[in-house]
Design a protein around this nucleic acid. Structure first.
Lengths: 153, 153
DNA sequence: CATAACCCTATAGATTTTATAGATGTAATT
DNA sequence: AATTACATCTATAAAATCTATAGGGTTATG
């Protein structure tokens, strides 16, 4: 399960993607627009900046913007930055050296082997889905919906 | 990320699968064999029984056994029982009526749409992988390993 | 009556989420 | 150049929630 943190991140990034035109967006604007506690959002944005997804500018006239176009930022990257990966067991996550205490021998732990397959499946989706794709999906669904509404009138 | 509860469940079920011969296994035996806190295991086994994966018998000569052969029990079923599903967002999990407060309109929430794709990917693995498969994977890995060991001598 | 699963409750610890207070850096204004 | 307003950054801590575990009594069965 992804945390609220990651959901907030994706919402904030959606907003920034929709407003991707060279302008900087204020944290407070993002916070009110997407209804996210401001200070929490601040921490999230810093993480995303350090992860290379966002650019920021301090001081008057400052703010945040995407570091690259929406179509180049994958959901996987975002989840990875905020959750440290999306594996279903810890020992399969990025940069994790330790072995789960449960699997005596990680190379033949059945759970690990199964969850590795799962991780590959998750990865194949998240690594190929970008912010742009997410917005498009959302738009399509909205259009679909309004079309159904029209017919039903 | 799956919880320790689910890992313990899978370990306990592995043990029961390896000893699937009509005999009943004691909680205490399971607990020592797989190194799981007995009381915690107790709760897990009850959940698995209620989920239809295990059969139990109370009283002297009682214990637990799989309700059906290892090849008929999917990992997805187990995860579903203990975690209430394996979706990455709550609103996609089994039996969840409520909508995530974050996505105003769930039908066009981008996050939800993406995570729905992810869920399908996870599902395709977990719904087709059984306890028997998990044990087989583990055995194969062990064999593979001992073969490499042999060569290296 | 001894055994062994069942059931309910409590709690310490960890994690997540939110809030508070100020530090630091930038740009416009005086 | 000094001041001021702005806006991100940093650190901490409180609150809320979730996880893992333990305790103790209940019920069914041989």
């Amino acid at each position: 399960m992804i945390s609220k943190k990651t959901k907030y991140a994706l919402k904030a990034l959606s907003y920034l993607a929709e407003h991707y035109n060279g302008d900087l967006v204020l944290i407070s604007e993002l916070a009110t627009a997407e209804d996210i506690p401001k200070k929490f959002l601040e921490a999230i944005l810093v993480a995303l900046r350090k992860g290379g997804v966002l650019k920021s500018k301090i001081g008057k006239g400052g703010g945040y913007m995407l570091a690259s176009p929406p179509a180049t930022i994958t959901i996987g990257k975002v989840v990875s930055i905020l959750e440290g990966g999306f594996a279903l067991v810890e020992c399969l996550n990025d940069n994790v050296k330790v072995v789960c205490e449960e699997c005596g021998d990680p190379t033949c732990c059945g759970i690990r082997l199964v969850m590795s397959d799962v991780k590959i499946a998750i990865d194949s989706v998240l690594a190929t889905t970008t912010l742009a794709d997410m917005l498009e999906k959302s738009d399509m669904a909205r259009q679909q919906k309004s079309r159904i509404m029209d017919y039903s009138i």
